[in-house]
Amino acid sequence: MAKSTRNRPASTRESNARQTNRPPQIVQTVEQSVQQLNGRSSGLQNVGNPERAISIAAGAILAALGLRRRDATGVFIAGVGSALAFRGITGHCSLYQALGANTCPCDADRDDGVEVSASFLINKPAEVLYSFWRHFENLPKFMSHLESVSELDRGRSHWVANAPAIYGGKVEWDAEITADEPNKLIRWRSLPGADIEHRGSIQFTKALGDRGTNVRVEMEYRPPAGKLGQWIAKLFHEEPKQQIHDDLRRFKRLMEAGDILTIVGQPRGTCTGHGVRES
């Protein structure tokens, strides 16, 4: 099993252009992503770009001067210079973080989407898994945030996801299949005009020996610009990474055992003398 979540830069059409002005995105943990989405300080950029340029230049000059002195004071100066340069290159200042300061305007245009992936070994042949998944209307049987998927025509489908408290409780989009290699791969993406941009793929690879099929799912969701903070927590019931992992586990269970066991509805006590049903 493996899974990863990354914050992706910029959802909008000009994203590529803007991306080139940015430092390389650092792979984050989900916890960091969620903190960032919630607007809390993260371990990432908190120094504005003009200030970073000054920081790098000043740091480099100090380091050079320090190294030329060839004495203890020089080492100290060079150290300070290196730290400044490092701060400029990474865009992250620990002192700012400690003080709660932030000179980066990045928050205003932070409309990153969420990309998650998960993989599972499923003890069934690829043909069985592919044909179940290829009928997208099956997906809500194991994907907890999907309410329905209906197939339209020409590889297009209509998706409805539960999203309590936004967009009247639901988000909807039309999607099209962009790649379809039987028993190997399916890719799909939302069509323009969707409530959210969504793209996904599933790959089926034969596992070693008689172990079945390795299944890897990647999904990406991008809300309209600026909406992510409110949106993300409401679409997913838990952390996105955990949720996709759990969804794929449910897929595995449905395929291998034919059912997904639940305890909802079983009896339980209350320690008051009268029990209830598990909810």
Binding site: G258, Q266, G269
Partner: peptide, 27 residues
């Protein structure tokens, strides 16, 4: 039905709880 339930460390009790029912196809 009667069932034994856990309430706190070192404390269990016998309670009246609902009967179990079929929740999955092969229960």
């Amino acid at each position: 039905m009667k069932a034994l339930t856990w309430c706190a460390p070192y404390k269990v009790s016998v309670e009246e709880v609902p009967q179990p029912k079929i929740l999955n196809q092969r229960d």
